[in-house]
Design a protein around this nucleic acid. Structure first.
Lengths: 362, 362
DNA sequence: CAGCATGACTGAAGCGCTTCAGCCATGCCA
DNA sequence: TGGCATGGCTGAAGCGCTTCAGTCATGCTG
């Protein structure tokens, strides 16, 4: 049976319908796109005929070519899908973005990253999208050149800072400072820090000074910097603060890192984490070691994902407006699409949410 | 400065490059797509000129129109993005799929669902993709009609059973039976069941018989059926088994449901869950209530996500090969794209993984 | 009743690319 | 030396649609 193949080949087009109804192709097009351009009776007749012919509406690709707009936004991720989505923060941001662009009949094309910290240039070149959104890509991602070469508008979430792109980000450094200050205020003086990737190389482990200062991931760099600088101002030497880098932001990796941090000598009495997921891992690691949070160890996270309110104990963390971040990025994308120039960066507020995972040093 | 707009308008095309080099458009096209059709020196010259002209390669949309292939696979989800991705199982499946199609230079278009349990038909109609993948959509999803109307090949993951589509699914019923048998074998006789959505209406709560039997989500139906039928064979009347439906598969919703289940009279000594996420919620709920797993309560999950091995206690669960599921779906999509007929459904094996969240009834 | 705005529809020019049937040298073999 | 395969390139026909400048009745105004 070859009928399937030939069915697919010989699908009806606008012309088929036009001929069947006895009108011009333009009229059929108008029936779909500009109902006000023809009498509603004729429109009805056209739609009816189309249906009976098995015509499902204007072909999206042809329409895109004619309108020079593919009605899609490309979303560039720093890593593969499963890694990326192990952090619920991304899901929330993406959901905010999707609902915004979806309301404007745009679809979302996912572009997974690889070891370069972003999608391969060839992917970027071939993806049908008329605006790109970068989510927390390293400064060095080759994907950006490809975007520029295509002349596509770009909105950047979190990082990097790029000329001629719209940007939305949060006050990571400030948020981290707030968290560190809180802990200092509670009398802590011995700390450990748990961060997610500083480099896109997929390495987990203790962080050297060089590795830290050369980090291409701004978010990690800022949060880490916020923690360390503030501690230093509080009299804690950065050299005495062990830092563990997890190669992703999920709780198992957090648990692993926390286990290392909590077995340093002297043992930290407070752990600062770059994300809630990592913090959840700390809670687990503490329990594994027979330590009680917050009595023995204080833990703070970053993000304030919904679950932070329900962990055991509820997590003290830095709140960032994740859904807003996505929505705002969506609006910016739409705006650039409409020909707008990139406005000044949107900087979203962070705030400290004190729950039960922090306590005065005993 | 209008230059941005006109820049975007006046981008170089194949013709621009052809004219600059002094060859025909076909030759430039060949330079990109069929290197063997021209001398490598000419090809070099063309590529070089293109670069200097700021030509980023053939326009993806135009190319798609000419080749009648959009090189994209559409992924239809039963719900919005954040809801969908709160279950890590989806991320893993999607990752498997993405890496498969990505290797063949296809991209992935996400189509979020709404309260109908799938993407709106208008989205389906307008999305540029030449094969659709449905992930656990209800039988009733209107999205399917739209797919059929466009004549697009379809691969269905998990459900529903649709004529003329490729399908990959797991032995949900069998898996559930295994889990229930294990618990029966351990001497349990008082059970509670925690399932995710039976209907796409976003309702959480105790499940009536009607609601259960009319459930449009096959996976929930099968797992629930596997549990209940097996229990019944083991002498436990289904009427005596409380069932809670969570409107999604995340641990907070699981915790909520488990709290309800664990406060029934008599209190169940074993909880059967439709997913690991829900099971994690049970572990939490048990702890909240001062109960110890598995001494007071046995808990089993479904999926065997990576974290199941590291929960406290490690989770007894039904393993399904998630990454394989995604990969297989990707291969099927590619095969249909190549003109193949839908093969017989792929049915992946499940197996019981016994860890430490189950114990004999005390 | 001339003049004109209005509504309903059409013709044709693209959008940027792929592909395939040639065409033309060139080199090789017998 | 004639015949033929081969490599390298081109011309032109689409792919299916949007859009815009018209054309042509029709009805309304003065």
């Amino acid at each position: 049976m070859l009928s399937v193949d030939s069915d697919r080949r010989r699908r009806p087009t606008l012309d088929t319908v036009a001929a069947a109804v006895g009108v011009s192709r333009a009229t059929v097009s108008n029936a779909y796109n500009r109902p006000d351009q023809l009498s509603s009776s004729l429109r009805e007749r056209i739609l009816e005929t189309a249906r009976s012919l098995g015509y499902a509406g204007p072909d999206p690709v042809a329409r895109s070519l004619a309108t020079r707009s593919s009605a899609a936004v490309g979303f560039m991720l720093p890593q593969g899908l499963s890694g990326a989505f192990s952090d619920p923060a991304l899901s929330i941001v993406l959901d905010g973005l999707a609902s915004t662009v979806d309301g404007h009949d745009h679809s979302l094309v996912l572009m997974p990253g690889d070891a370069t910290g972003g999608p391969r240039p060839s992917i970027v070149t071939r993806t049908q999208a008329d605006v790109m959104v970068a989510y927390s890509l390293p400064d060095s991602a080759p994907a950006f050149e490809a975007v520029a070469a295509r002349g596509l508008p770009l909105v950047v979430i979190d990082q990097p800072v790029l000329p001629n792109s719209a940007r939305v980000e949060v006050q990571d450094y400030l948020g981290a400072s707030l968290a560190a200050s809180l802990l200092l205020g509670l009398g802590h003086s011995s700390f450990g820090i748990l961060t997610f990737s500083l480099h896109p190389d997929g390495v987990s482990g203790p962080v050297s000074f060089e590795r830290r200062s050369a980090a291409p991931f701004r978010v990690s760099r800022d949060r880490l910097g916020g923690y360390l600088d503030t501690l230093e101002k509080g009299g804690v030497k950065p050299d005495n603060v062990p830092v563990w880098e997890a190669r992703g932001s999920d709780r198992e990796l957090g648990r692993l890192g926390a286990r290392w941090l909590l077995t340093r000598t002297p043992r930290p009495s407070a752990l600062l984490c770059a994300s809630d997921q990592l913090a959840f891992g700390c809670l687990r690691a503490a329990r594994d070691l027979g330590l009680t949070v917050p009595r023995d160890i204080s833990v703070v996270g970053f993000d304030d994902v919904p679950e932070a309110a329900y962990s055991d104990p509820p997590l003290t963390t830095v709140r960032q407006p994740l859904a807003d971040k996505g929505r705002r990025a969506g609006e910016l994308a739409l705006k650039l699409l409409a020909g707008g120039r990139p406005p000044r960066p949107t900087r979203l507020d962070v705030s400290l949410v004190e729950r039960a995972s922090t306590a005065p040093r005993t």
